[in-house]
Write a protein that binds this DNA or RNA. Sequence first.
DNA 1: AAAAAAC
Length: 618
Amino acid sequence: MRTSWADLAANSAADNASYANNAGSGNNTSAPPSRPAYVPPHLRNRPPPTAESPAPPPARTGPASGSGTGTGTGTGRWSAPRNEYRSGTGGSGHTSGWGNKSAGWDRGRDREVNPFADQDDSEPAFTDQENTGINFDAYEDIPVETTGENVPPPVNTFAEIDLGEALNENIRRCKYVRPTPVQRNAIPISLAGRDLMACAQTGSGKTAAFCFPIISGIMRGQPMQRPPRGVRTVYPLALVLSPTRELSMQIHEEARKFSYQTGVRVVVAYGGAPINQQLRDLERGVDILVATPGRLVDLLERARVSLQMIRYLALDEADRMLDMGFEPQIRKIVEQMDMPPPGDRQTMLFSATFPREIQRLAADFLSNYIFLAVGRVGSSTDLIDQRVEYVQESDKRSHLMDLLHAQRENGVQGKQALTLVFVETKKGADALEHWLYLNGFPATTIHGDRTQQEREFALRSFKSGNTPILVATDVAARGLDIPHVAHVVNFDLPNDIDDYVHRIGRTGRAGKKGLATAFFNDNNANLARSLADLMQEANQEVPAWLSRYAARSSFGGGRNRRSGGGDRFGGRDFRREGSFSRGGGSDYHSAGNSGGGYGASGGYAGGYGGPGVTSAWD
DNA sequence: AAAAAAC
């Protein structure tokens, strides 16, 4: 406990040095100077910023300015060989040590950058903690529900599964010792070739749960015949979609570790970043494409990517991907391009929440699928101490200040513990950040009106502890793994209880404890009931005033549009619900729901009236 | 009503 956060705080100061050391990789002393500007994966194939040339322009389209050392067979199809693509190629090759940070491959003799390089010596602040220190005791007695035909049995160890030598080695490098519950269950299912709809909390190893079978399957498959030269279209074998750019980046980084030296190539594509680097990455070969929908559609329309060869489709945060804003785009990608239909591909949907209506939509993408629900670490949100305080709009800022002061006193070694503050709007995020800044709090913000560079810098700065307060919109609500978030503040509560679930899930990760504070007032009346039920289910103390609100709002108002009860924390397979029990909540206790307590909240779901009523609310 | 996601 003390070790990681204290060390993190201490080390974040030394971060510059470690970054330079890593980059130098023992072969140069002219590593980038002090400033360790974060270099996101898509920008990493660039020369280091130096004192003389502060930063490269964001887009570098033409052939690299770098000289062409090396033999470069097969590399420079469209331009001269680029030495920045082959970090330290050919023994003597030292481009800049910075090249070691680059994400990517050399074709030809496949010189792959080691994604574990960071963790070897000196960068504990940004690597280890997401893979280690998982409190496995918190995973005992996790309720698991699987429904569907011929469900493959779970495994208890990685050794029981034949994932292949190279992948096993990466699992070891990641310091994964035992599979988490979602991995124990999901991996055998997908190795058996089955489609899957899985409800499991992020931070419990979900990414690995879909990456391992994909990588293993690609390794086993026959090597794909490369399209003829000059044809710029690439044919990934697996597609992983996620709702935000930062989440796609995170998945990509993880997938790169899992696929290291397996011959399986992972490329990420998302908006807000220059497309040219992504195009080059694609041209160098892609087996697994991780993408956000907009950029992928762009690539498909440019015919730079074809989905014809897709064997695996994974949707992360799948309920989000299928909700109103995203559904048309996802349908276009999955149903109206050239992707093989369900049955001819393997489809895996993952999320922590899976509202019934969304399950219904998702079923279109699936074939004879298995529904898997894995209760949250600690079998609910036990690990997150949830508090709700009644705060008028006009008092929110001073109230937040009180919380932050308290948090500051809890800080370690002069560093505040990380606090993630969610607000409803982008403008509100900027305004709050500015106000915090004026009041001497080190805050930054992430939202969709910021440039991608700003977003990535903000996230990096927060993770490192340099800016221990992050004001965020829902862009940061889902999936992001930010170790050491001690406190999530719902400065503005969301309108949807599922969003609340995802937001507070940014803390209390990997079996560690977390704190979540929500500011509630009359504007949130419609959330009262679902919030009170949720908290009760998670063994939290529900303030009496909130219960009164909940009781009031239960007359007609207050049910959540999207979400029936029991969809949280694993939820339940909508196929199990008979036509009369659509109304939700009525048959939670039926046989087969092994969830001791989870998913069993009748509660606010009662009266949720199925499609008819849903449309009345919409 | 807002947020996210392409240029």
